[in-house]
Design a protein around this nucleic acid. Structure first.
Length: 491
RNA sequence: CGGGGCGUAGCGUAGCCCGGUCAUCGCGCCACAUUUGGGAUGUGGAGGUCGCAAGUUCGAAUCUUGCCGCCCCGACCA
């Protein structure tokens, strides 16, 4: 069978790729660089999306929707923004096809050329700020706190399932405020929402920090991020929250009258997370047997596998298990009873492990006699015989335990992979042999950062929030430095 | 866009160097039987313009040329 997945040790990229495909999350599509998100993967995304959406609404945001197409001229209004995105945009130039008069297939009708080309949005700042201009006149119209769930397109040269695909799903929040401070507060608040979601729901420990100038979002004044660490020691930027200052307000001429009737440009933020989070989830927790999903977002939290020979035995199990399934549902636990007789138990065990279902319950007639079931947890693979009385409650406690124990495991890994380096040799050795975040001094210049990247392939992942000040010397140049920053090789 | 590699059944592949029952094997699929507490076994079966086109030849998956597509490394990348 080709069901075995490549080992992590052997080839991490291959392992990841196999896992995503074989667990049924996603697959390659007919369109280069794009992927098909399959039902199981989408169910996972929906759970994540729904929770994020709740958190956005709890912080006062509303959803809206803006066009997929952006007139080319919009994109060029903010100089840094266009520089950052121009190289990876898909462009619509025509609006009609016709039959090839020379026979054969169908061709683009040369007479149907657009006056102004349309860009398939790589992000929506421009179209949204062009719209906000019409929404905002007075301080009474502020703040505007809007989020959009959408797809975007970035024509990347090389793609990887979930981590970097040509088209991806995400949410992008775009807010407008009367003061700089309020916008900065919003930026930090949403960074906090992302960190909370990652840690409490995805069981993914993250470092909150600010990006260096080189890594900053095109058009932002400051870019904040959450950075996570994968099991191969590489970092993954998992979410960003940007303070945009008045850059977009100036580019799109969005002014408001304050209480003193003074005109000023509004202050902006934008923030986003994408289906890349699924990639983070896969790489942070899974093992060689498959996915390990945190119970809080797993599409199936519990699977029940009956073990029977013949209809009579199945009937006995069905009768016993039926009320237990109702108990699970009453507790809000998503449960699947897999009584498909065309697959054998061993096949199912392996399949649900591959899919990362947190808890598996196996029950056969010999268990019925003892009023027990075999309960297996996916994260540690520990199995034990548990009484059928109060089974749903027992499992509920177990699910909570799994949630916290996979977080602890990921956090222990992360914490032991933040390492200080004080010399260049040490820095390179750590990157090559251990991976993870390297905490090292940096003189604060773009030149040094570039040079370090060139020599070591490591980038500044972030300058952690509340970073302690410390006198030191730049890891490469030896120039004086006032703090350590986190370096790492990244996806 | 530079460097390397690949295209044979739904998937993964052998054969190619040295043209001639070569279209191989595994998984998957279908049927039946025996099975069912860790990815079952047996028997039988279906499924292919060997990426496309032209050429060489009595004969091409195999040799030649052109085209198309994909993958990997680099460059690129919030």
């Amino acid at each position: 069978m080709s069901k075995e997945i490549t080992s992590r040790e052997q080839d991490y990229s291959q392992w990841y790729n196999d896992l995503v495909i074989k667990a049924g999350l996603a697959d390659y599509s007919a369109v280069r660089g794009c992927m098909v998100i399959k039902p199981y993967g989408f169910a996972l995304w929906e759970n994540m999306r729904d929770q994020l959406d709740k958190m956005f609404k709890a912080t006062g945001h509303q959803n809206a929707y803006f066009p997929l197409f952006i007139p080319k001229s919009f994109l060029s209004k903010e100089a840094a923004h266009v520089d950052g995105f121009a190289k990876e945009c898909a462009v619509v130039t025509h609006y009609r096809l016709k039959n090839d008069p020379n026979g054969g297939g169908i061709i683009v009708d040369p007479d149907a050329k657009l006056e102004e080309e349309l860009i398939v949005r790589p992000t929506s700042e421009t179209i949204i700020w062009n719209t906000y201009k019409t929404w905002i006149q007075s301080y009474r119209d502020l703040p505007v706190l809007v989020n959009q769930w959408a797809n975007v397109v970035r024509w990347e040269m090389r793609t990887r399932l979930f981590l970097r695909t040509t088209e991806f799903l995400w949410q992008e929040g775009h807010t407008a405020h009367a003061t700089a401070q309020e916008a900065i507060d919003e930026t930090m608040k949403m960074l906090g929402v992302y960190a909370e979601f990652a840690e409490e729901w995805m069981a993914l420990p993250v470092v909150k920090g600010v990006k260096s100038v080189n890594e900053r979002f095109a058009g932002a004044v400051d870019t904040y991020c959450i950075e996570a660490l994968m099991q191969d020691g590489k970092a993954l930027q998992s979410g960003t929250s940007h303070f945009l200052g008045q850059n977009f307000a100036k580019a799109f001429d969005v002014k408001f009258s304050d209480k003193e009737n003074k005109l000023d440009y509004v202050w902006a933020t934008s923030w986003g997370v994408s289906t890349r989070l699924i990639g983070a989830l896969v790489m942070a927790h899974s093992d060689d047997d498959g996915l390990i999903l945190p119970p809080k977002i797993a599409p199936i939290q519990v699977v029940i596998v009956p073990i029977f020979k013949g209809e009579d035995q199945k009937k006995l199990i069905d009768e016993k298990i039926d009320p237990i399934i109702q108990d699970f549902k009453a507790l809000g636990i998503s449960v699947k009873y897999d009584d498909d007789d065309s697959r054998r138990p061993g096949w199912k065990f392996a399949e649900y492990e591959l899919k990362g279902v947190p808890v598996r319950i196996a029950i056969g007639v010999r268990d019925l006699e003892n009023n027990v079931a075999e309960v297996a947890r996916r994260d540690t693979k520990a199995k034990e015989s548990v009484s059928l009385d109060g089974l749903a409650n027992t499992v509920k406690v177990l699910l909570d335990d799994i949630q916290s124990s996979i977080y602890k495991k990921a956090k222990a890994y992360r914490d032991t992979h933040i390492t200080k380096a004080d010399t260049w040799d040490e820095f390179v050795k750590l990157l090559d042999e251990k991976g993870g975040f390297i905490s090292a001094h940096w003189d604060g210049t773009a030149e040094s950062e570039e040079k370090i990247k060139e020599l070591s392939k490591a980038t500044i992942r972030c300058i952690p929030l509340n970073n302690p000040k410390e006198e030191g010397k730049d890891i490469l140049t030896g120039n004086p430095s006032s703090e350590r920053v986190l370096f790492g090789r990244a996806y």
